[in-house]
Amino acid sequence: MDSPHGAAVRAEDFGLKGPRGWAFRGVGIDAAPGSLIAVEGPSGSGRTCLLLALTGRMKPTAGHAEVGGHRLPKHMAAVRRIAALGPVSGVNDLDQALTVAEQLREGALLHRRYDGPVRALLRPRAERRAAAAARVDAALAAAGLDLATLPKGERTSVRDLERLESVRLSVAIALLGSPRLIALDDLDLKLSDAEREEAWVLLRSLAASGITVLAVCSEAPGDAIVLRTVAETPDGTPDGTPDSTPDGTPDDSTGKSADEATGADDTADDTADEDVTEDVTEEVTEDDDTKGADDALAEAGRA
Rank of each mutant, 00 (worst) to 15 (best):
P73E: 03
G301T: 02
A77T: 14
I225N: 09
G107L: 06
A172D: 07
R112E: 08
A231C: 13
P33S: 08
P124W: 08
E299A: 15
Q96W: 02
V79C: 07
M1F: 05
R81T: 06
A143C: 10
L189R: 15
R228L: 01
D247S: 14
A138I: 01
D185K: 01
V88G: 04
D269H: 14
A65W: 02
T156Y: 07
K190V: 11
E102R: 04
S35I: 06
R159E: 13
G86D: 09
C49Y: 00
P238V: 12
P117Y: 05
A300C: 11
T48F: 05
L140Y: 08
A303E: 08
E102Q: 13
A8N: 11
R128V: 06
L206G: 07
G69W: 04
V88I: 10
G56Q: 03
R128T: 02
V171C: 10
T212R: 08
A224C: 07
F14D: 07
R57T: 00
R81L: 04
A300D: 10
G34R: 06
T245N: 09
E66Y: 02
L203Y: 08
G107K: 09
G263F: 04
V158I: 10
P179K: 06
L85Y: 04
R81H: 13
S209D: 12
A120K: 05
G263W: 01
L147D: 03
A139F: 07
S253A: 15
L52M: 15
E232F: 00
P117F: 03
D252G: 04
V118W: 09
G56P: 03
T233C: 09
E197T: 15
E286Q: 08
